[in-house]
Design a protein around this nucleic acid. Structure first.
Lengths: 353, 353
DNA sequence: CTCACGATTGATAACGTTCTCATTCAAATC
DNA sequence: GATTTGAATGAGAACGTTATCAATCGTGAG
């Protein structure tokens, strides 16, 4: 098995155009100080020969690898995958980031890393040493793991923290969770609901807290009481069941519930059926995810669409342009919207308050 | 922006262990003819320094890039993605392939390419030239596009054709579509159904034909008539509606329908509701996909689970081991299974045949 | 007309690894 | 004991690109 060679290299182009290697390099990198005539001549040779630069060689020689690394939590990703659901994060990250990266001549590579392992740094370090990416995208809960963010900061590789606004190194990005929760709450208030329950996600995720904040603020703005209307889950279907039951077991149960994940929203739907409650006539439900399942369950759920793909795309752009623009001071917000479907309706008329 | 250097290189290891570069190289590549004592000494230095080889440098020098390229159809992938559904192919390919590749020190990169464009070869060629992957995984309909398979064969890069068994270059892989369709049909026959409709996929996909074959064979084995029980769609929800209507509009409509995709199965479910048919009492439905939606619709659909992730994983393994094992003569079958849920039941008792 | 200066081009040395071939050394053969 | 063989190690070139610095070319100022 001999050495495998690139079919057309910069040398062939240089020879064909009758210029030096360096000039060809300048043209493909769109560098200044190349005369238009020269540029055209070189470009013609490139097109004629179908030359494409090797990213391996570029990495070897230059300061860029044209690779963006996206890391996700392995346990959660595999668990979601085996459950055959909720994989939208990975999926959307992939597509949003991949397409944007490809447009700029970059590639995105996914890496699954265990957040809760004591050798996160080693695992992540190995990936970085092997690939030498130009940027790293870190998703929750990695993005809030100081071991990981610290390691990345130390290694000097630019990175974007998605779902983390805490001061610190890296580009901070969110999907406006407070705003989203506020939108959902306002929607329900407009429909006349006054007792709006909220099922939160685990504390490990800052965004879980922001969502609660957004709900609480909207409630207080409307002078509504939050007392006893907050339950906690861990985003899973199973955790949603007791949370929904606790809310609906109250003496004056909520007429609407916002769940922090689609799985917990589906659990709420199940509990409603179990209690003989009609959705949306007796109980309105809003989900915080907008994965396919919430469209096809009955009724289709009103949901908050988190623009994960757009966020990933934006992260890729910011990382690529970092060398020119530097990192944004403030957190970058890529906001989503409320998609109204069949699970929310006017509040049932009250007999007593 | 200066040259970015790898922190620990093979040189550092060689210096630390007091051996030549080549010896270190032999150890990391697990080559023969290294004395155990020497190997241990070098390995100790590697561990001590935390050395990880650079894939860029390995590609530059050697015959391997440690990259596997997986290509998917861009149009279909983006369309599915925007529809916020049916993205399981990409998703499972990614996870199945990625995990297996990572175990072997490889990475998988996704590339979206337009099958129906006249410059497929250029697009694919650019990706290959840039990345120089050690293997390519090609999914339908790419895997049946002679432009693509021909180009790959010519370029000499090993590749796996998923969903294509036609003679030709590359590793041939299927998910046993005929067997799967047979399983579904047999399941319905066991439940007493005699008129079992089938909604096929587009001709562009060989596997669509195999599924029809599997259904037809099972029907014929049971001496049942297929006449007028076959309709065609294009895997989309919209195409499923007229197909399902055509089947149910017959004088003696089928009591069970197998749909070649989840979207078409959901369409069939909608048409049944529209006709006032109860599922599964009046009509049984089997889907050929097993994406999350079919679990959460009402009733949850009995479905065929296509082991896409396992297939992708197997493809990665075969491609990596190609240099030792060569390519398998016969098509590699990674078979899936039938998952029985609430959409299939005993056939309604017949008044007349 | 000469000089200086910026714009444009080129030559050469890296980058980190593997390939190829040469060398050493020990064991096996005659 | 000399010769052959094969295993174990090493030295240097090569891979395709960019960084660095040197050389050349115009062009406007003096």
């Amino acid at each position: 098995m001999g050495r495998r060679r690139q079919s057309v290299t910069i040398k062939h182009v240089a020879a064909d155009a009758g210029v030096s290697l360096q000039t060809v390099s300048r043209v493909i990198n769109n560098e200044p100080n190349v005369r238009p005539a020269m540029k055209a001549k070189v470009q013609a040779s490139i097109d004629k020969l179908g030359y494409v630069p090797s990213i391996a060689a570029r990495r070897m020689s230059g300061s860029r690898s044209y690779l963006i690394l996206a890391i996700n939590d392995r346990d959660r990703t595999i668990a979601d995958w085996q459950a055959r659901d909720g994989r939208d994060w990975v999926d959307q990250m992939l597509l949003g980031g991949m397409l944007t990266a490809a447009e700029r001549g970059y590639r995105m590579i996914f890496e699954l890393v265990d957040t809760h392992s004591d050798h996160v740094e080693r695992e992540l370090g190995a990936a970085i040493a092997a690939l030498q990416p130009d940027g790293v995208i870190v998703t929750p809960p990695h993005s809030e793991n100081p071991q990981i963010t610290g390691f990345l900061a130390e290694s000097g590789i630019p990175f974007a923290r998605i779902g983390s606004t805490e001061e610190g190194p890296g580009i901070r990005m969110t999907m406006g969770d407070e705003l989203l929760a506020g939108k959902a709450t306002d929607h329900l208030i407009e429909l006349g609901h006054t007792r709006i329950g909220f099922i939160a996600g685990p504390d490990e995720y800052s965004l879980a807290g922001w969502r609660v904040d957004g709900w609480r603020e909207a409630m207080e703005n409307a002078e509504l009481d939050c007392e006893g209307l907050l339950e906690k889950g861990d985003f899973s279907f199973e955790s949603g069941l007791p949370a929904a039951r606790a809310l609906l077991d109250r003496a004056t149960p909520p007429t609407a519930i916002i769940a922090s994940s689609d799985q917990m929203a589906l659990a709420t739907l199940d509990v409603a059926k179990e209690r003989g409650l009609r959705v949306p006539q007796d109980l309105s439900i809003v989900s915080f995810d907008n994965t396919p399942v919430v469209r096809f369950c009955t009724p289709a759920l009103t949901a908050l669409d988190q623009p994960i793909a757009r966020t990933a795309a934006r992260a890729v752009e910011l990382l690529i342009d970092l060398r020119n623009n530097g990192i944004p001071e403030a957190p970058v917000v890529v906001e989503g919207e409320l998609i109204v479907r069949g699970s929310t309706a006017r509040a049932p008329s009250e007999r007593k308050n």
